[in-house]
Write a protein that binds this DNA or RNA. Structure first.
Lengths: 359, 359
DNA sequence: GCGTTTCATGTAATCCATTACATTGCGTTG
DNA sequence: CAACGCAATGTAATGGATTACATGAAACGC
């Protein structure tokens, strides 16, 4: 029927805001004011601070607003008020279940204070981090919580509205919340030592991340405490992926390294490690004990269930958001580094080393 | 030292945009124009369509922009242009690894077309879905991709800039991309039948979701094809969580139901099911075969590795975003429901039923 | 050399809400 | 009853960009 018309319309480059199909248009505060027979100021007040307008007027306005389905244009509002009540949480990898609990914590506190949270996945790419951070410079968000060890550059005077969670940065000006990775990793290795292990391999995370360096430090210190030599041949590093864990163990085994336990810098690598051990016919924990880090949701469902260092994920998120809110309310609050503690959770993947010598 | 001053300051309610600490202020296009000795229009043009300003002017402006670290106020820009080049992807649960691959697909296509993606976790709460959807009504985002089976209400005339991914809604006006759940579930059950299973239990997902109904339908149809009775006692439903899978199997076992295979509506419930079977001393797949749905990243790392229906996660995301972009460019494109196919991936959790009778 | 393009730039309207300040009307109070 | 305070509402400036239209200068054709 109207095929010609519609094809013709589609053929030309369309104006961005073609109202061709729209039967009703989007409402503005002016229209509401006109229909409710008040000024725009009164409409604005009726919506922002209802207590200052008279009951009759307020009700009339609210009725019109509801009837016409009016939603104030947040861009205009935010432009005027210079705040958005929106924060962006940057996470390296949504596929990593570790972060989901942290996000929950962030959102809980955010909502309590009237903030909304949007998530940006950065895949550890500087470019993406920067793109999301630019939203702050461009006034589309009030602040950023970053879960990487880099602070994006925001061309802004004064204190950056950025808080660091899970990781930390050296920059003294940036508040961070994270766990005592040295102590936590140390406790994990201490436990293996207590079980009787003497040859403990270590799968490190990306060395660019300070927390990974700390976990390695914890491992080294624990070995030293036990008067065990730190053997570089037993240390491999990976990128936090399951596959990296597999590859690391395969490497150790193919090199003929002897070890009765592996401490992994995160749970996903531990899962990979268990898998690789299994496919080489080694049993966990009888032949090799495995310890992870993070305590992701799947950790208790591996078989055997994974012994791991449980980070207080929810608390990390809550604390980070609380700090950011504080910072947004008062740019002068001094930055601080808040260190939480992480506890070892013993499950089935660890046991005393078997008495017979492993190959 | 300045403790009194700072306490005093903190005590009073601060003006929202206290510039107290800021040594330099945030720049506006006016300042750039003044410094570069051109009009604001020229600055805007130099940044938006550099080819229309002369080389000399452009360079001068860019130099000033860079030197002062100027970022245009996106609120002002978006207010004027009525577009944000931002879309929000609503996902029920970031902890579910299924969605992460879908998000990747969305982001890939989005970036190709100059869109940014922000993620909103809804936890299946209508209120949260609505809150994020309101961002579109409030002009803070151009469109929404929702991964739930509900379409948020956006008080907007005409076609809603919403696309549905992974799930689908009955509403004909909303484009959806999803897999043929009936066929895929059927294929999974067919496979179990082929292996020789006759007593196949089913763990359903939330019945509110159409795709879960479809998966159940696929299960029923496959049983009928195999001329097997559909036994309601072998059907339990769960909420997609690992724990739900555990509980479902425990329920079946405690009821003394006899079954040699379980088909689960998602992988997490399958992981829970395997766990529950294991803790009752039943081996997978020797005693009971387990099949999941989704093929999340962890599915190949369970032991035994999980046989599951692989959804084309990346394609779901890409297609959804492509549809949304198309819709944003032209509100008149007809809505469509795009159905992709999902393939069974056979791994170690399935085997022919053991000849001896199980308890 | 004069009219006509073309190119580069400027002027000012516009997007839509918030809010300081102004105004109005009414009830108190001395 | 003049003066005042207060409550309710209106007027208009404002936030920071984009962009239609206007202008001026240079280039061009004949």
């Amino acid at each position: 029927m109207s095929s010609e018309g519609s094809r013709g319309k589609r053929a030309v480059a369309r104006a961005p805001r073609s109202a061709a199909v729209a039967p009703a248009r989007v409402r503005t505060i002016k229209e509401i004011a006109a229909i409710a027979n008040v000024s725009v100021a009164t409409v604005s007040r009726a919506l922002q601070r209802p207590e200052v307008v008279s009951d009759a007027t307020r009700q009339r306005i609210q009725e019109v607003v509801k009837r016409l389905g009016y939603t104030p244009n947040a861009l205009a509002r935010n432009l005027r008020t210079a705040r958005t009540r929106l924060i962006v949480a940057l996470l390296p990898d949504i596929a990593n279940p570790f972060f989901s609990e942290v996000i929950r914590g962030i959102e809980q506190v955010a909502h309590e204070s009237g903030y909304s949270v949007l998530l940006g996945e950065t895949r550890s790419s500087l470019v993406r981090e920067q793109a999301y951070a630019d939203m702050v410079a461009a006034r589309q968000a009030d602040g950023i919580i970053t879960m990487s060890h880099r602070v994006p550059k925001i061309p802004m005077p004064g204190r950056l509205p950025v808080v660091n969670a899970c990781e930390y940065v050296k920059d003294k000006q940036i508040s961070s919340v994270y766990v005592d990775n040295v102590a936590a990793a140390g406790a994990a290795v201490d436990y293996l030592v207590t079980l009787g292990h003497r040859e403990i391999a270590f799968i490190a995370g990306p060395p660019s991340s300070p927390i990974c360096v700390d976990r390695e430090k914890g491992y080294r210190l624990a070995l030293q405490r036990a008067q065990l030599a730190v053997d570089p041949a037993l240390m491999v590093s990976g990128d936090f992926s399951i596959e990296a864990g597999e590859r690391a163990v395969e490497l150790l085994l193919s090199q003929g390294q002897s070890f009765s336990a592996v401490f992994c810098s995160n749970d996903e690598m531990a899962i990979g490690a268990m898998r690789a051990l299994g496919s080489r016919g080694l049993r966990v924990p009888e032949d090799v004990s495995v310890v992870g880090f993070d305590d992701i949701r799947f950790a208790r469902y591996t078989s055997p269930a994974l012994t791991t260092v449980a980070q207080p994920k929810n608390a990390l998120g809550r604390e980070a958001m609380a700090m950011l809110i504080e910072l947004l309310a008062d740019p002068e609050v001094p930055p601080r580094k808040r260190v939480l503690s992480a506890d070892l959770v013993v499950r089935g993947s660890t046991a005393p080393p078997s008495p017979r010598k492993r190959k």
